[in-house]
Amino acid sequence: MRLDLLQVDFLAPLFLVGAWTGYALYADGGRRQTLMARMRDYRLAWMRQMMVRDNRIVDTQITSLLVQNISFFASSAILLIGGLVAILGAREQAMAIIADIPLAAATPAGLWEIKVLLLALIFVYAFFKFTWSLRQFNYVAILIGATPPPEEAGSQSMTWHIERTASVASRAADHFNKAMRAYYFGLAALSWFVHPWLLVAATLWVLVVNWRREFRSHSYMLLGEAGEPVDGPQGRPDQQESP
């Protein structure tokens, strides 16, 4: 059965949502060897190094840098949401601009508003993820300040505190990663304004980009696999002899 353009226009966003949800379940579920999983080991190593430092200014500076980066993206999400709301009030002008793009598909007024609302919803989701990540990194800063003195290193209470701090930092980073993923799929959703088949192609492209960065990127290879010692084999992975 051949689908007409209007049917594809309604099915394309379902493909986007399904692909996004499926990838999130695949990448975040279980204990897969991902870039994020490997970084959890490095956060735990960071907290262990922080434990033995008398002066923990460097740790608070790292946390402050992470908070600044997240604040930038959260502010950007608010600006994008405001711009999309403004587009709803200037529908005719915006539709005229899109209509001038070669191969752009004609869109009914009601469907146009659905497209804008979908994009706004994606960035609202990203904003909430960014702000929750921001709050959790603030908690990390407090936990760093509450770390016992180095003399208590090796005690059970210190071990629990270090693991707890690393876990909160990892959860904050996970929410930041999900918010960035929303940005990627939001950019794919932007192509829906031009043509529904372009949305399908952009969604597939975003899936490939996300998968490669989390599972096959050069950074992933350099950092090693989750569970390996952080100070494991010396030298770059691409310079080691193959077995």
Rank of each mutant, 00 (worst) to 15 (best):
R2N: 15
R236P: 01
L14G: 08
E225K: 15
E241F: 12
S170L: 04
E113I: 09
S76L: 15
A37G: 14
W46R: 09
A104K: 02
L44T: 09
L198Q: 08
F15L: 15
L65Q: 12
G154H: 02
A19S: 13
L118M: 12
L223V: 07
P150M: 01
L121R: 01
A179W: 03
I98H: 09
T107F: 00
M180E: 07
F215H: 13
G224F: 11
A109S: 11
A24F: 06
E228R: 14
H218R: 15
W160N: 08
A105R: 12
D41Y: 09
L222D: 13
V85G: 01
V168L: 07
R236M: 15
L198H: 06
A179R: 02
A45K: 10
V230C: 15
A141G: 11
Y26C: 02
T34L: 10
A182K: 03
V206N: 04
D28M: 06
V124D: 01
N210D: 13
P196N: 04
V208N: 02
R236K: 14
A105K: 12
F130V: 02
G30F: 05
G224M: 11
V58K: 02
I57N: 04
G110N: 12
T147C: 02
S155I: 00
F215Y: 14
E151L: 04
F193Q: 04
Y220P: 00
S76Y: 03
R236I: 02
V200I: 15
